[in-house]
């Protein structure tokens, strides 16, 4: 038995992601300076911060797209590379990044096709690709090509695709940034439903303070020049959350507090 399963057996939770004194540099430029952080498994984190403060870089660091210049990053107790090979995390980009020649269903199936010929053991969601499309509200559109879908629908296909390998960690980089407010509200509710049903850990980057408060259990606030961790704010609002909660005084207080932090950056 390795250390990870021992920990799990002992009931102590392995953090979904853990950064220890992590730095990221692009040449001389420091994008992330000395971040230490533990992401609790199963939690929903929103990530806020001024443009260029390293939010995307942080997600790219955790997902093994870029290496740390110094420090350590682990995902569920493994190296980021081992976690990537085991498909423990999935990424949702700002634009859906669907393959335009594949139908919605075929796009969702893509992760299952990759690696199979090499005999790699990929985890598979209990839900079929079809059921995942249904989960994100796209029943009946599974054979549509991406260009036949709206921006919000494409993003939902991307979310279904991200869930198809049963990830334990979902990294989302402004997934709803390009959508109108109504669609965004709708998708926020759907995302919370997915989170509650699957128990996945979510790191959700956004530019919108209300969105960050509405979704997250915690908000990670980063600050710029160079990118550092500014503060972690706990959002003690009950789930399931509803749009009406936005008008409550607590919600407004959290928003005002975060706005203050953002302006101080």
């Amino acid at each position: 038995m390795d250390a990870v399963s021992l920990n799990a057996a002992a009931g102590t939770q392995v953090p979904a992601a853990s950064l220890r004194n992590a730095w990221v540099k692009f040449g001389q430029f420091t994008a992330i300076q000395d971040i230490s952080l533990e992401i609790e498994a199963g939690a929903f984190y929103s990530i806020l911060g001024p443009s260029g403060c390293g939010k995307s870089t942080l997600l790219r660091l955790v997902s093994d797209l870029i290496p740390p210049a110094a420090g350590e990053v682990s995902v569920f107790g493994k190296t980021t590379e081992a976690a990537r090979l085991a498909r423990e995390f999935a990424f949702v980009f700002q634009d859906a990044t669907l393959l335009p020649w594949r139908s919605a269903l075929k796009n969702v199936e893509l992760p299952l096709e990759i690696g199979r010929s090499r005999g790699i053991d990929i985890p598979v969601s209990d839900k079929s690709p079809m059921e995942l499309l249904e989960l994100v509200g796209l029943k009946g559109r599974e054979h549509a090509l991406p260009h036949e879908l709206s921006g919000g629908m494409r993003q939902r296909v991307a979310i279904a695709r991200a869930l198809v390998c049963k990830p334990k960690l979902l990294l989302m980089d402004e997934p709803f940034g390009a959508l109108d407010e109504m669609t965004r509200d709708h998708l926020n509710l759907q995302l919370l439903k997915v989170w509650e049903e699957t128990g996945v850990t979510i790191l959700f980057v956004t530019h919108s303070i209300p969105e960050a408060v509405f979704l997250g259990q915690k908000v990670l606030m980063l600050k710029a020049h160079p990118g550092r961790l500014h503060e972690i704010v706990d959002i003690d609002l009950p789930y399931p959350r509803s749009i009406a909660q936005r008008d409550t005084p607590e919600f407004t207080r959290y928003s005002a507090h975060l706005r203050g932090l953002l302006e101080a950056c």
Partner: peptide
């Protein structure tokens, strides 16, 4: 971004070629 997606799925060079 499509290449980053492939990287996150740990796609091999030949998979990137044939599928993307």
């Amino acid at each position: 971004q499509a290449l980053e997606l492939a990287r996150i799925l740990s796609a091999s060079k030949s998979e990137v070629f044939w599928k993307i």
